[in-house]
């Protein structure tokens, strides 16, 4: 009887120890699991120097020691772009004070329709701190290329004129200016918050 009891006790103690190790100790040593694809960059992220929605020009260097989320989109986009911007805004709200060091940038892939003023009013609706960037189609194409972003105007109807197909991913640049993450456009608020919180 006593041996059975002793064995059971030892077993219970073993299980308890394993549980503590699994649920308490291990998570502290585990690195953060990113939702976004982690990019190992040898050099800082390529610069994005374009006209901004505030009427000035800006480059990535202006956001020193900040985490920058770059999205390529356009204001005529009714579905995906507002959805992504709304997700970003909700993430900013959830991050609270931590979002002070976060800059959201939308680079327009439709410079013909997206003037700096248009971008300011459009993005201001989601968050006045979101920054729009635009320029000549060539300048935007250069930036898009180094970030692996595709965009192309495609014929629409008489009423839409043209629509722009574009890569809908989010590029996350860390505090040191290195491209750190590429996230899918349909990322959830919680996934975004989790990755950004870790980087901030």
């Amino acid at each position: 009887m006593t041996t059975v009891r002793r064995t059971l006790l030892a077993l219970a103690a073993g299980v308890a120890l394993a549980a503590v190790a699994w649920f308490v100790v291990l998570p502290r040593f585990q690195s953060h699991v990113f939702t976004g694809t982690v990019i190992q960059s040898q050099t800082p992220a390529p610069d994005i120097a374009l006209a901004t929605s505030t009427g000035a020009t800006a480059s990535l260097g202006d956001f020193e020691d900040q985490v920058v989320v770059v999205y390529f989109g356009y204001t005529f986009c009714p579905d995906v772009c507002p959805t992504t911007l709304s997700t970003l805004k909700k993430a900013v709200d959830k991050l609270g004070g931590a979002s002070d060091d976060l800059q959201v940038v939308m680079v327009s892939v439709d410079p013909a329709r997206d003037t700096p003023e248009m971008l300011r009013e459009y993005l201001g609706f989601f968050d006045p701190d979101f920054l729009g960037m635009t320029g000549s189609e060539d300048d935007i194409a250069s930036v898009a290329t180094v970030y692996g972003v595709f965009f192309a105007a495609e014929p629409g109807t008489a009423d839409t004129g043209y629509l722009v197909s574009h890569t809908a991913r989010l590029m996350v640049i860390d505090r040191d200016g290195y491209l750190k993450l590429v996230m899918p456009g349909d990322v959830t608020v919680d996934q975004l918050v989790s990755d950004l919180e870790y980087l901030l």
């Binding site: 579905d79 995906v80 495609e154 109807t157 629509l163 197909s165 574009h166 809908a168 456009g185």
Partner: peptide, 15 residues
């Protein structure tokens, strides 16, 4: 208009 957005290798197309 009735539209469909489609994700194709990370590229969003609407038609």
């Amino acid at each position: 208009e009735l539209h469909e957005s489609q994700m194709d290798d990370g590229v969003m197309r609407m038609q």
